[in-house]
Amino acid sequence: MKAVIAENLMKTYNKGSVQALDGLSLDVEEGTVLGVLGPNGAGKTTTVRILATLLSPDSGRASVAGIDVLKHPDEVRKIIGLSGQYAAVDETLTGWDNLIMFGRLYHLSAKAASARAVELLEQFRLTESAKRPIRTYSGGMRRRLDLAASLIVRPKVLFLDEPTTGLDPRGRQDMWGVIDELVKGGVTLLLTTQYLEEADHLADEIAVIDHGKVIARGTSDSLKKQVGGERLEIVVENENMAAVKEIVAKVSGSAINVDEGLRQVSAPVTTGSKALIEAAKLLDEKGIHPLDIGLKRPSLDDVFLALTGHVAEEKKEEEDSMTTGRKRGK
């Protein structure tokens, strides 16, 4: 059964001058995780806001658990949870007070809201900090509390819009563990993210969107296969580059790729480990000792680059940081 269905969603902003969604269609099977990847401005957040009844499309239709999002938004809100890019909690209140407030907003009795708050604080390892003001929480704690608040009504479907944005690697790993447990509990999840590793770890299937439409969909492995097979990569000292280019070209029988900065020569191969063994033999015959040699499978980074024409935001940020560091002489 499809827990989420979106068909031909269209949405523009600024009197039609900005096309956010351009006929976007996707669905999520009940009890699974769909990761939605795309560059900033691709339409990820707009899609989530429509499915969560916070925004109406210009045209198209959508349903959650069989309920029409446009015709019965109140019914949809009773069965979904939503956690956005920024923690939607009141910093002047304590963690406990925030959860009680959300419980009461969902029309839980005082007793039921209190019981649910106790459960969630324990589940998200926030019991010890429950009576502290949110302004004293770390970024990871705020994100966990925000996710806890989205689970007050035990939703059938959960929408997470870049839930680990701004977290350090450890905080991101902690959040992945929480999400894994939710999925094991039977929650259907639509997850937008700019972290390719996150989609690889959490999603059963991945939809790549760009310019407001889905441009590819499949499992992580199937998307990687679209990019191509394995690549032979060899890193050597500069004086050996010419000889290694000849060896890689001979072994692969394909056009080679040369990165002078990394001193790396690579090319696609179809024979896997046989190509690696042959290349190692030829290097040995010429007395060349590579700094690194191996076979590389395509990554989601490669998929993203091949499909959208540019690197993912997370990778771009890292590259920009490295460039800035070099300019400063670091």
Results as ranks from 00 to 15, higher is better:
Q85V: 10
E119A: 08
G166D: 04
E198D: 05
I152D: 04
A6V: 09
S114T: 14
M322R: 15
A306V: 01
L305F: 15
R61S: 15
S83Q: 14
G16E: 07
K71C: 07
T193E: 03
Q194F: 06
M101E: 03
R154T: 14
R132C: 00
E162A: 03
L191A: 07
L307R: 07
A255K: 14
R132W: 04
V269Y: 04
F304D: 04
N257P: 00
V214D: 03
D58Y: 08
S321P: 00
S59Y: 06
A130N: 03
L93K: 15
T323M: 14
S254P: 00
L262G: 06
V36W: 05
L82R: 05
E119P: 05
A242H: 11
P73Q: 02
K330V: 15
A62D: 02
V251K: 07
A20K: 02
E181Y: 03
V48E: 00
A279C: 01
R144I: 06
V76G: 01
G16M: 02
R217A: 04
G23P: 11
D259H: 07
A115W: 09
H72R: 14
L21S: 02
I206D: 00
K286N: 10
Y13F: 15
M141H: 05
T32H: 11
A279R: 10
K15F: 14
G31I: 06
L126F: 13
G294Q: 04
D320K: 14
S273A: 12
D90K: 10
D204H: 15
G103I: 12
V28D: 00
N8D: 14
A216S: 13
M101H: 12
V36E: 04
L55G: 03
R154M: 10
P57I: 09
G177P: 01
K131C: 00
L282I: 10
G60L: 09
R328T: 00
G41Y: 04
N98C: 13
S129Y: 13
V48C: 08
I277V: 14
I206C: 04
G294K: 03
D320M: 15
G23D: 07
D97F: 09
V69W: 09
G228I: 12
V76K: 07
S63D: 01
G309T: 07
R326W: 13
S83R: 11
S114K: 14
A267G: 08
P39C: 04
L158R: 05
D204T: 12
L151R: 10
V214C: 09
E318R: 13
Q194W: 12
M10H: 15
D221Q: 13
D27A: 13
L190M: 15
K274N: 14
A306S: 14
Y106T: 01
T192E: 05
A199S: 01
G177T: 02
A267P: 05
E285D: 10
M1V: 02
D284C: 01
E91W: 13
L291E: 10
G60R: 07
A280P: 00
G84H: 02
E119K: 11
D259S: 12
E181S: 11
D90H: 10
G16D: 03
T308Q: 11
P57D: 06
D68S: 11
E181K: 14
